[in-house]
Design a protein around this nucleic acid. Sequence first.
DNA 1: CATGTATATCGCAAGATGACGATAAAATCA
DNA 2: TGATTTTATCGTCATCTTGCGATATACATG
Lengths: 106, 106
Amino acid sequence: MQDDDIATIMRALGHPVRLNILRILSNQQRPECCCADVTESLTLAQSTVSQHIKVLLDAGLIERKPRGTRNCYIVQHERLAALGSAYSGMVAALGPATPKMEAEPA
Amino acid sequence: MQDDDIATIMRALGHPVRLNILRILSNQQRPECCCADVTESLTLAQSTVSQHIKVLLDAGLIERKPRGTRNCYIVQHERLAALGSAYSGMVAALGPATPKMEAEPA
DNA sequence: CATGTATATCGCAAGATGACGATAAAATCA
DNA sequence: TGATTTTATCGTCATCTTGCGATATACATG
């Protein structure tokens, strides 16, 4: 994964509302979750929620599924995991992960 | 770690130049790395680099160490690891991490 | 004290972001 | 067909971001 991709996804995740939207979409109680459901769970205008959803869509973090007049959104766990891997790799490459945890040779 | 903290750190990491700065600061060849060193490695004005450094500072991802007329910056690996943990926890809480990898009961 | 060096900060301009209300588009239903 | 529902998009505004050059600050050194 390229730096630009990582940065794009990070930026998409860099807003509390969008983290919340991911949680709302992942709610097991609600198998298919549409924009109205998300809006209902937040104190934001529908257009604002739609914009946030677009950011998550463009970052590949969710996927759109048309369901009649509604659009349901599915969290792309693979993509989330991919970022996790890329991030871990990057942090590991940056240097000693936890130097204080390593045995200090006398 | 709160959503706001996660979002703040994510936003700080949500720019390719800042990812690069973290790498430059982590370069083992250069034990103490200051703003000028970073600027030298990038095609950006010193003031711009200083601003990016400030973003990383405010997010707690690096630490400033005065060295005479220079300021050296140290990557806070703990903080990077903390984000990794928080992120992993969040993704895990979001739902099935990798459902396709699980044995499908017939 | 004066000079030089390194860096943070200021001011500015261009563009992106986040919020909203209003509206258009697409699908369902009477 | 017409009405309803759901959602994306448009226009607008205020704010934040990203880049720059210029400048002030702080430290070392002559």
